[in-house]
Design a protein around this nucleic acid. Sequence first.
DNA 1: GTCTATATACAGATAGAC
DNA 2: GTCTATCTGTATATAGAC
Lengths: 192, 192
Amino acid sequence: MDARTKILETATRLFATHGYDSTSLSLVAKDASVSKALIFWHFENKENLYEAVLARTIEPYRIEPERIADKSVPDQVEHLIDLYYGFITENVHSVRFFLSLFLRDDKRPDDFFTRVLDLYKHYRELVAGALRAGQQSGTLSAEIDAEAHAALILSSLNGILVQALTGEQDTASPERLVRELKASLVDRLRVQ
Amino acid sequence: MDARTKILETATRLFATHGYDSTSLSLVAKDASVSKALIFWHFENKENLYEAVLARTIEPYRIEPERIADKSVPDQVEHLIDLYYGFITENVHSVRFFLSLFLRDDKRPDDFFTRVLDLYKHYRELVAGALRAGQQSGTLSAEIDAEAHAALILSSLNGILVQALTGEQDTASPERLVRELKASLVDRLRVQ
DNA sequence: GTCTATATACAGATAGAC
DNA sequence: GTCTATCTGTATATAGAC
């Protein structure tokens, strides 16, 4: 692996765990086994390195349409829930990173910020759309407000994520909570 | 107000918004209109100041029993939800602070960490207990697992909190989401 | 208790040899 | 491209006057 990539990988790990300010370039250099000067040669300054790290981190953040619209309408909502949960599971570290960015007054370039938010909104609209489709086909209760309910489903998923991230080891596992979520927020809406 | 308190208040605000490392004592001194040396005279060093800030911040974190058991059983769950939401609303800044602490590899003394976790667990047990009471008195469906369902309710509340903290301004307000939560995770369980 | 002045360490960043 | 040596600013922390 070339030095540039080595620096990038090391910096990604360190920024994610300690944040921007608490990560010194001396430490990055040491952990990547290069000199501090080399970091500047490749990335010019600390902020540039950080932006490169963010760009690298956000790369897998996208919605893959082919994964979505291939299920019968009532199950589509649960399928979307599984996709969301699967994505989070595969990207725990960067998800934790972005979440902590949202909570801090830290360095957070707006373009990345809004890109994550847009993805989130888009996903919520997909869930809302699936709920509406279920209502129109008569398989889901017409009583609920699809938009608000979709927002609740996503919020609950985020809450489960937070619970998993903060590492509370007791009783309810994330998987158990997701099952409970599906049972309460989807299955219970099915028209018999 | 005496200088010690002024320092403590200023430091609380700054640590909460910028974190431990990004808050310099020079800034605290300037914002509190005292000399840097005075901070050291009162708190010895930066870590001590930080611990004092944490102790001050966690002070209102407690469960008040008199607020809890004064409702009819089926409404008790919704009452607990309101209490949780109310607490969060009143303490947004410190809640945000603690949440970001949980997500970072930052300075986080374990005693504070576990105290917050214990409170959370205790609260979840209160919700589970209320659910069980409802099931025993026949007002709530016996089908659900009270522990898992209580965990889901708390997770959802945390998710709503995160949504509010990350400041997504569109469509669903936190209040709207809490209403939706009550409708889906409590009302829908009522036995007619 | 509160200040100014200072010591010491380490941060981000540059110069210049190879 | 990669290094060592160095500059400059600012951080935590101390000394000592009042």
